[in-house]
Computed example of a mutant assay.
Amino acid sequence: MISIGMGTTSVLHRRLADAFHLAAEAGFDGVEIMVTSDPDTRDPRVIKALSARYGMPVLSIHAPVLVLTTFVYGLDARVKLQRSVELARHVGASTVVVHPPFRWQVIAARGFESAVRELTEATGVTIAVENMFPVTVRGRDREAYAPSWNPGDLAVDALTLDFSHAALAGVSSLDLAEQWGDRLRHVHLCDGSSVEPNDRVFDEHLLPGRGAQPVAEVLQLLARRGFDGALIAEINTRSCGSDDSRRLALLRETVQFAREHTATRSREVAAQRRSLVSDR
Score class of each variant (00 low, 15 high):
Ser37Cys: 06
Asp40Lys: 01
Asp40Cys: 04
Asp40Leu: 05
Arg42Thr: 04
Asp43Pro: 01
Pro44Tyr: 09
Pro44Val: 10
Arg45Ile: 15
Ile47Ser: 10
Lys48Ile: 05
Lys48Ala: 11
Ala49Leu: 08
Leu50Lys: 05
Ala52His: 05
Tyr54Thr: 04
Tyr54Gln: 03
Met56Gln: 14
Val58Ser: 03
Val58Glu: 01
Leu59Gly: 12
Ser60Pro: 07
Ile61Ala: 02
His62Ile: 05
Pro64Arg: 09
Val65Gly: 11
Leu66His: 14
Val67Ser: 14
Thr69Asp: 03
Val72Pro: 06
Val72Tyr: 04
Tyr73Gly: 04
Ala77Glu: 14
Val79Gln: 15
Lys80Gln: 08
Gln82Arg: 14
Val85Asn: 11
Glu86Phe: 06
Glu86Asp: 05
Leu87Arg: 12
Leu87His: 11
Leu87Ala: 12
Val91Cys: 00
Gly92Ser: 12
Ala93Asp: 00
Ala93Asn: 03
Thr95Asp: 00
Thr95Pro: 00
Val98Pro: 07
Trp104Ala: 12
Trp104Val: 07
Val106Asn: 10
Arg110Cys: 15
Phe112Gly: 00
Ser114Pro: 01
Ala115Lys: 02
Arg117Glu: 04
Thr120Lys: 13
Thr120Gln: 13
Glu121Asn: 00
Ala122Ser: 10
Thr123Lys: 00
Gly124Lys: 08
Val125Gly: 09
Thr126Asn: 13
Thr126Ala: 13
Ile127Lys: 02
Ile127Pro: 06
Glu130Val: 03
Met132Leu: 12
Phe133His: 09
Phe133Ser: 08
Phe133Met: 08
Val135Phe: 14
Thr136Cys: 12
Thr136Asp: 12
Val137Leu: 10
Val137Tyr: 06
Arg142Trp: 05
Glu143Lys: 14
Glu143His: 12
Tyr145Leu: 04
Tyr145Met: 08
Tyr145Phe: 15
Pro147Asp: 06
Ser148Glu: 09
Trp149Lys: 09
Pro151Asn: 02
Asp153Ser: 11
Leu154Phe: 01
Ala158Arg: 02
Ala158His: 03
Leu159Gln: 07
Leu159Arg: 08
Thr160Asp: 13
Thr160Tyr: 10
Leu161Ile: 11
Leu161Ala: 13
His165Arg: 01
His165Gln: 01
Ala167Gln: 06
Gly170Tyr: 01
Gly170Trp: 05
